[in-house]
Design a protein around this nucleic acid. Structure first.
Lengths: 152, 152
DNA sequence: ACGTTATAGTTACATATGAAACCACTTGCA
DNA sequence: TGCAAGTGGTTTCATATGTAACTATAACGT
C-alpha cells in the first residue's frame, strides 16, 4: 500500500539501493579507521587484518591466515612480506612440512597491536553510539542473517 | 551484565567486529551483482553507477555525476571515457560553459540499462528475502542513522 | 580590459589488486 | 621406490585506483 511500484527496469535510485548503501557505509567506516593507523604506522588495512588474526591465533600458516581474513593468498603473501620486513611478524618454517610457514607477532608487533586494537575498538564504539540498544541488537541479528550464506 | 569485557587491547575478533563484517558483506553483495553484469556487458561497477545516475538525471555534467555517485572526478572521467567509447553515453558541451559536459544515455545505453537495472533489483530482492518484514524496517532505519553523518 | 583565482575535466605517475604461472615440497599410489 | 597430482607460498603481469599536476575555460575584483 505505501510502497511505490517502480517497474523493474525504471532507473535505480542508488541512494535507496541496499547494495550501494552498504558499500558507501562500509567504505566510509573502514577508511576512517584505516586512515588512522596508516598515518601512525604505515600499515594497510590488509596488513592490519593479518596482524589481528595473528594476535588471536599464534602460529598460523599463511593459508590459514588467508582463510580467517577472507583474503586471497596473494594478498596475504604480500602483507606478510611487508610485516616481516617491518619486524612486526615472525616467520619460521614448519617442522615436518617445509612448505608451510609458522607465523606470529613479534614483540614489536604486539606493541603495534596494543595501539591499533583499541583504536579500532574506539571507532566501532563511535559508530554504535549512533544507535540505541534495540537497534544494536537488531543490527547484529540482521548481519547474522545476511551473512548466513553470502560469503560464497 | 551479559557482555564480556575484553580489555581494550585484547586481540580483535574480526568476525564480530562491525566494520569488518560490513566490509565482508558489502563486498560479497556488490561483487555478486557486478560479476553478473560484467560477464554480460564488460561493465565495471563504477561504470554501471554512472549509467544508473544518468538514467535518472539526464544532462548532468561529469562533476554532478561524481557528486551523485560519491565517486571522485578521476574515476568518473575514466568511466565516461569508456562509456562514450562503447556508445552507451552521449557527451556534448554545455552552451555557455565550454568546460562543462552534458551527459546522457544513448539508445544503446538505455538498452543496457533495461537489462542491468532489473538484474540489480533482483539481487537486492534476494538479499532482502533473507529478512522478515520487521527486520527490513529496522535495517533501513539503522542504515539511515549510521549514514547520517558518516559520509564525511 | 586584465590579471588573479576558481572550476571542469584529463593526463601522468605511482601504488594496489587479482589471475595465472611458477617453484618447492608432500602426498598418494602403482 | 618413483612419479603423477596436490598444496603452500611467491612472482609476474595486466588492470584498477588514488593523488597530484596540468589544460582549458570562466568568474571575480580592480
Amino acid at each position: 500500500m505505501p510502497e511505490e511500484h517502480h517497474p523493474d527496469h525504471a532507473p535505480l535510485e542508488l541512494e535507496r539501493f541496499l547494495p550501494y548503501r552498504l558499500s558507501i557505509l562500509s567504505n566510509a567506516v573502514s577508511q576512517a579507521i584505516a586512515d588512522d593507523y596508516q598515518r601512525r604506522f604505515d600499515l594497510s588495512m590488509t596488513e592490519w587484518r593479518v596482524m589481528a588474526v595473528l594476535a588471536r591465533f599464534d602460529g598460523l600458516s599463511a593459508r590459514e591466515v588467508a582463510e580467517r581474513t577472507l583474503m586471497d593468498k596473494v594478498a596475504v603473501s604480500r602483507a606478510l612480506a611487508k610485516l616481516v620486513e617491518a619486524g612486526w611478524v615472525t616467520r619460521a618454517t614448519h617442522d615436518g612440512d617445509k612448505r608451510r610457514s609458522v607465523l606470529g607477532l613479534s614483540e614489536a608487533g604486539w606493541a603495534v597491536h596494543e595501539v591499533v586494537a583499541p583504536m579500532a575498538r574506539q571507532h566501532e564504539r563511535n559508530l554504535l553510539a549512533r544507535l540505541d540498544e534495540e537497534e544494536r541488537t537488531w543490527l547484529v541479528r540482521i548481519l547474522d542473517k545476511l551473512q548466513a550464506m553470502e560469503p560464497k
